[in-house]
Amino acid sequence: MSGENWRQERKTLLATLGPPLFWLTLFFLVPLAVVWAYSFGRNVGLTEIEISGTFANYAQAIQPLYLGIFFKSMLMAAACTVICLIAGFPVALAITFAPDKAKAWLLLAVMLPFWTNLLIRTYALIAVLRNEGYINLTLGWVWKQVGLVLNVPPFVPLEMLHNNPAVLFGLVYVHLPFMVLPLYAALDRLDRSLIEASLDLGAGHFRTMMLVVVPLALPGILSGVLITFIPALGAYLTPDLLGGPDSQMIANVIERQFKRANDWPFGAALSFLLLYLTFVMVAVQALIQRRRGAR
């Protein structure tokens, strides 16, 4: 009744849809269109850009140097996603099977870092990982205790910061909630009696996991992968603060074009290549989902 009526009531529709549409258009679509236009322009002077319809920026963007950084960014994001999946699946499972009272607290524990400012979290990681950081302090103390009994060389702090592993560690740390929440949502929906039926029919826990739980949680796994991979691909702050000279990702390059290099058209072209990449991935996921649904 009312569910059908609102489609016909144009005024109501306009009143509810209007403001968000207006907001999205003015502050998202229009700026995006401007940047998109820039990607076909060239610098004429310090602040002026002429939209000339050139493809030169894109041609520059697909040079080996930048393609390499694109490729490396994808590799980092993929590694981050795989680690998040491997680490997040057991966490999501544990929350699913936790007693109802504990569930909310466990979910809060997953969400809490997520609600903390990214900059603060990243600096906290630096405090943990740096040469005088908590890990090295602890290791040094243990080393010293060992030195009391055994003859060992002096402690050399582990280099854990400003390199690729540090970036990967940071990316996993930041993006783990993105993976855990969709996984949890998918696993929590799963009918428990399906798991029990599998056990009842003779399968152990591992085979039940592989033959029943994972296939049925696949939509959740797919969306978790996508939701983790996309922001990881565009990560900027993490490689900037935790990475070394060779760990820059595509977002760092884009930032440099807009700021230090002052080459907005090239930065815009790089940005849109990243955006197209994202579109392709979302499309692929939608295709997979639809095929599963159609079956």
């Binding site: 009918d191 009696s193 399906l194 029990e196 039926a197 599998s198 029943v212 296939p215 049925l216």
Partner: peptide, 9 residues
């Protein structure tokens, strides 16, 4: 099972 628990996939 009461819900039959037939594997949907």
């Amino acid at each position: 099972f009461q819900s039959y628990a037939v594997f949907p996939h």
